[in-house]
Design a protein around this nucleic acid. Structure first.
Lengths: 348, 348
DNA sequence: GTGAAAGCGCTAACAC
DNA sequence: GTGTTAGCGCTTTCAC
């Protein structure tokens, strides 16, 4: 049905078969290493014909037959956020290592957009869906149809019925951060900046902050909620400053926000860490280059991505929650003494 | 060939046809609005049957037939770089607006990896390839096969035979940056930090810096080359500091590097902008939250992404280069007086 | 306005 | 060890 003009029809498995003087089945056997054996010389001939003709298998045809695309869908909220950016990078790596392609989409924290993206990716027949959901898992499953691709929920606080879930042990991370501020740095009034409805409701970081302040007998300082972004953190901190509610230390729920918080405090002339140490959550590499460098509870993003892809490759029959430990990376913003900079100050 | 267990075979167009009491052709006509007309009542019946059965078209089958996936491939170097991150975000938006999916991959600046990714995406039958190449376009076309998908080269300095190319007018941007430093801020020795082999060889930013310093009779200060990353910028600046080569102003080739540069200078106790103003290139939103905020030559990323997708949707028969103007966004790092911060300093 | 049927390129069961 | 062939689910030409 000559939809292709005669000039340069794409070369198909039939062309290869003809050139190698074998049947198309044999070409398949060679390509897939099975399911039937092929004589070495035949295989060689086939292979020769293949790269002679520059044969490239038709992915769609293969998909149609096998029902698998070797592709995963990845839905994140916002890749400008360094945590999601790093996560996306690790997913990309982990996926390619296993021969998967990655169809990405950003929800920008919009639940409806998220639903649309999910269903679009599902229509594109991805083998699995990795989703860092916007908002807490509701009673309705994140993905509607039971015949939909297996879904792995990332950045997830706890188990969600019927889904694989991966997330940091955020409550512990938060407690460690607060404990550090209270214990090591002797702070008595520790406030918090966080985003709306994070991993769960209430967000475990919030819960961790509450319980740890209580456990240590320190005052939970002001709480400021704003977007999970640089700007959100900035606004939240500004609000604290403008209302005179700045506590004597701040735990910030994400590195993205912490970047904005630092900026707001610096702008207001607050001395960090002396006047107000800041510890955040995520522990991304971005925190190495802020001023001051961010002390932050690090999520093992690489390991999480590897697990996500392992789950995709060998779908565990009964989904469960996988919590990852979080460890505090000490940099400058908490006030810990560090190895003195090697820098040689130079006046120009 | 019961590859699907009986329990819940996916519903196909044949099921819909049966349910609606029509032929499969009619279902197609309804779905695609053609190519043949369908009686309104028939169409209604079909549509009813479709969402009755929860019918979802099989993307692979459609692709096999039509030869189009409604998917583009996007290959970037490193999405931790705020410029690429913003670009990726805009591409995602522009693509979805036009009903395209986006298969992403990161090359991390590795030419071989890039080639592999390109050929993988091509095998996955993307309709087009958007590529921010690692290194300057060589004589060999970025994509080998003539039957390969149309390719749009992003972040590209100039025309490349046989390809659509999009890029900033980087030389002008560089000149504007240097001119600003020289003219407005009276700097006489302007150095530069840049990455290896950028858009072209030599990088137009480098060329712009050279020509503009010359034109204004100022000294081109030290040149430091390192990775296109935070760490690269940091190392470059450290080298300048350690060798006593810090000039009295710095033009940095990317926001990603500038973040590292600021960090290194601050660490060394350099007063920015007084002792050493910094102007960078890209103008990403990240520069709003650095300390000090980055003055930077902004690339119109959104418009570039829209053009890229327009080219994908209506492939211009004769590819050409599209240069976009770049404008200096004045923030703090150059030393321009700004509206004073509204902040109310608060001592805790 | 509707239907039958021929592919799109590949896989794998089955025959030899 | 190799070949034949029936699909996978969709689109579209061509007959009616």
């Amino acid at each position: 049905m000559g939809r292709d003009e005669a000039r340069s029809r794409r070369v198909t498995r039939a062309d290869v078969a003809r050139a190698a003087g074998v049947s198309t089945a044999v070409v398949s056997y060679v390509m897939n290493g099975g399911p039937r054996p092929v004589a070495p010389e035949t295989a060689a001939r086939v292979r020769a014909a293949m790269d002679d003709l520059g044969y490239r298998p038709n992915h769609a045809a293969r998909t149609l037959n096998l029902g698998t695309t070797r592709t995963i869908g990845l839905v994140l909220q916002d890749t400008l956020n360094p945590y999601f950016a790093e996560f996306a990078g690790e997913i990309d790596r982990a996926a390619r290592e296993r021969g998967f392609g990655v169809l990405t989409a950003e929800s920008h924290g919009d639940r409806d957009a998220e639903r649309r993206l999910l269903s679009d990716l599902s229509d594109r027949q991805v083998d699995a869906l990795l989703l860092a959901s916007s908002g807490p898992p509701t009673t309705e499953p994140a993905v509607a149809n039971p015949r939909d691709p297996t879904t792995v929920l990332l950045d997830c606080a706890g188990p969600v019925a019927g889904h694989h879930t991966i997330g940091p042990d955020a409550a512990s991370g938060a407690r460690a951060a607060v404990a550090h501020l209270a214990q090591v740095h002797g702070r008595r009034r520790i406030g918090m900046v966080i985003g709306p409805d994070g991993l769960a409701s209430p967000d475990p970081r919030l819960a961790g902050w509450r319980s740890e302040t209580e456990a240590r007998g320190v005052t939970p300082g002001a709480l400021a909620v704003d977007d999970w972004s640089n700007a959100g953190g900035y606004r939240a901190a500004r609000r604290l400053l403008d209302t005179g509610a700045l506590p004597d230390a701040l735990f910030v729920g994400s590195d993205a926000q912490a970047i904005g918080v630092l900026r707001a405090l610096l702008e207001a002339g607050i001395d960090i860490p002396r006047a107000c140490p800041v510890v955040s959550f995520d522990g991304t590499g971005a925190g190495d280059f802020t001023w001051p460098a961010l002390t932050s509870a690090r999520q093992p993003v690489r390991e999480m991505a590897d697990l996500a892809l392992a789950l995709v490759a060998h779908p565990d029959p009964d989904p469960r929650h996988h919590a990852f430990p979080v460890d505090l990376v000490i940099r400058e913003s908490c006030g810990c003494p560090l190895a003195p900079p090697v820098a040689t100050p130079i006046d120009s």
